[in-house]
């Protein structure tokens, strides 16, 4: 006779306790999850003057919140790629001696088309478009 009542009380107490615990933990977990902070979408940035970058050199350009590697391969040819290595997120650099893009973290190598030449990167680098407007170098997202 008493047993069902005891069970009911146990369930009520246990359920109440669990519900309170969840009600404490849920906001705590939600709090730890960082909110989305929308950033202004950037489609085009100026990378400086043509004469600032010599042939066979590269430089990192701020493209919104992302680093982009701009490479002047010859007097007239320019290329730009995402500078974020597709392996583990390090920032790549241009290697003048081998005309390749190199990630110093785990020795990943990319050619000037962004394709992986050697090392652990699993994917090519994302390519960007480069235009010359007057004497200004402009990098833009590819459509």
């Amino acid at each position: 006779m008493d047993e069902p009542r005891r069970n009911l009380v146990r369930w009520l107490l246990g359920g109440g306790l669990s519900a309170s615990l969840i009600s404490f933990l849920y906001p705590a977990f939600k709090f730890m999850n960082p909110p989305d902070v929308p950033e202004a979408s950037v489609n085009e940035v100026s990378a400086g003057k043509v004469q600032d970058l010599k042939p066979n050199t590269g430089k990192i350009v701020k493209f919104g919140s992302l680093p982009v590697l701009l490479v002047r391969t010859t007097e007239t040819e320019w290329r730009a790629f995402s500078a974020v290595c597709t392996h583990l997120n390090c920032t790549v650099q241009y290697k003048e001696s081998s005309h390749q893009m190199w990630c110093a973290c785990h020795n990943g190598l990319y050619n000037l088309n962004g394709q992986v030449v050697s090392g652990p990167p699993p994917h090519p680098l994302e390519a960007y478009s480069v235009h010359i407007r007057g004497d200004e170098v402009v990098i833009s997202r590819r459509a």
């Binding site: 680093p67 590697l69 500078a83 920032t91 650099q93 990630c103």
Partner: peptide, 10 residues
């Protein structure tokens, strides 16, 4: 510097 490449020998 978030916009500098990873240095050699890292």
């Amino acid at each position: 510097d978030p916009f500098a490449p990873a240095p050699a020998g890292i």
